[in-house]
């Protein structure tokens, strides 16, 4: 009788935790060196005047918040460029994200539905994931070639008499934004589908069964059982997609050759940053300031979205937990 606690004590004293720490050290080293330090350097750089004129370096001179002030100085007609590009970025992301989430959710429900029992899932999953394997720039180049003035789509439509020779897909806001949103949608809906499927499959099957036995129809099952229980995964998907959206760059950059055609309506924040950083001026100050603004924006939005969406499921989940704990406490 006396030996048991002793043995338990000895077992407890062997700590495997240190191996855990050792195994994650490489990640933290890489993270600190290549992510955290540059992040602080970016903030640091944003307070300096630091650019080039040809081969002559100007600065770095400390200028305080001048770079930020310059970014928020309105033009003669009152537009503040950085706000315009922020709006562009969000519009481009939202028109791509809506179909992305709707279709992904639909497919995830279909694929996991015991009633539909779709055959050849492996094949479909591979196919819908495929576009994500193509480099965004290459995909963008492809779409550019397809829709260019000498591309097959233009020629086909001209031949059919649907459009005339003067029509240019890249001269209209709707078509260029449409192309960008379409590309983002095609590239990312497969990824979202697979993550959401994993989320749905993690839900206890008996809940669906009991809902069905209680006479719930498919809609009710989806809205009352699947969706609430899928919330944690959905929030994760949504926030990562949003962060990706705010950083949107390669697709519009390559499609419009960096100009954000037409009239800069497809110019995103990172494209704006890019011209300062890799343009002739190598303006680290201005580019740093834009990066910091993007960082703050991402942080705030991530927090707000998380709070809004996660609040619901947190309440629902914590209630039974609290209840259980109390029960256990009473029993003890």
């Amino acid at each position: 009788m006396k030996k048991q606690p002793e043995m338990q004590g000895r077992v407890k004293s062997i700590s495997y935790a240190k191996w855990g720490y050792i195994f994650i050290i490489p990640f933290f080293i890489v993270y600190i060196l290549f992510t955290l330090v540059p992040q602080f350097l970016t903030v640091y750089n944003s307070f300096f005047e630091n650019y080039r004129i040809g081969l002559t370096q100007v600065g770095p001179n400390y200028v305080g918040l001048e770079n930020y002030k310059a970014l928020f100085t309105p033009q003669s007609d009152g537009t503040i460029l950085i706000l315009k590009y922020t709006a562009n970025t969000f519009i481009l992301w939202i028109i791509g994200a809506i179909p992305q989430f709707v279709i992904a959710m639909l497919l995830a429900v279909f694929f996991t539905s015991g009633r539909l029992n779709i055959k050849g899932q492996g094949f479909f999953k591979t196919v819908i994931y495929m576009p994500n394997l193509i480099m965004a720039a290459a995909f963008s180049m492809l779409i550019y070639t397809l829709f260019s003035k000498v591309g097959p789509i233009q020629l086909f439509l001209e031949h059919q008499g649907i459009i005339d020779k003067t029509f240019d897909f890249f001269a209209y806001r709707v078509s260029v934004r449409g192309m960008i949103a379409f590309m983002n949608f095609i590239m990312w809906f497969g990824n979202t589908t697979i993550v959401l499927m994993a989320g749905i499959m993690g839900i206890d099957q008996s809940l669906f069964e009991s809902a069905t036995i209680d006479g719930a129809n498919a809609w009710q099952v989806f809205f009352k059982v699947t969706l609430p229980l899928l919330m944690p995964i959905f929030v994760y998907c949504f926030i990562t997609a949003m962060i990706g959206g705010i950083q949107m760059f390669d697709v519009p950059q390559v499609l419009t050759k960096g100009d954000g055609l037409p009239n800069e309506t497809t110019r995103t924040l990172v494209m704006y940053l890019n011209r300062y950083l890799s343009g002739a001026s190598r303006n680290y100050g201005a580019a740093g300031a834009i990066s910091v603004i993007i960082f703050i924006m991402t942080g705030v939005l991530g927090f707000v979205v998380y709070k809004m969406l996660a609040a619901q499921y947190q309440e629902k989940r914590s209630a039974p937990k609290y209840h259980r704990r109390r029960q256990r406490g009473e029993n003890a």
């Binding site: 004129i53 209209y172 055609l261 037409p262 800069e264 011209r275 343009g279 001026s281 303006n283």
Partner: peptide, 21 residues
């Protein structure tokens, strides 16, 4: 796709971004 004034404004912004001086 844009009027002349806007095009020139876009050009000036472009110059500003490329050459601070």
């Amino acid at each position: 796709s844009v009027d002349k004034e806007t095009a020139m404004k876009n050009f000036y912004n472009y110059v500003k971004e490329q050459y601070n001086n």
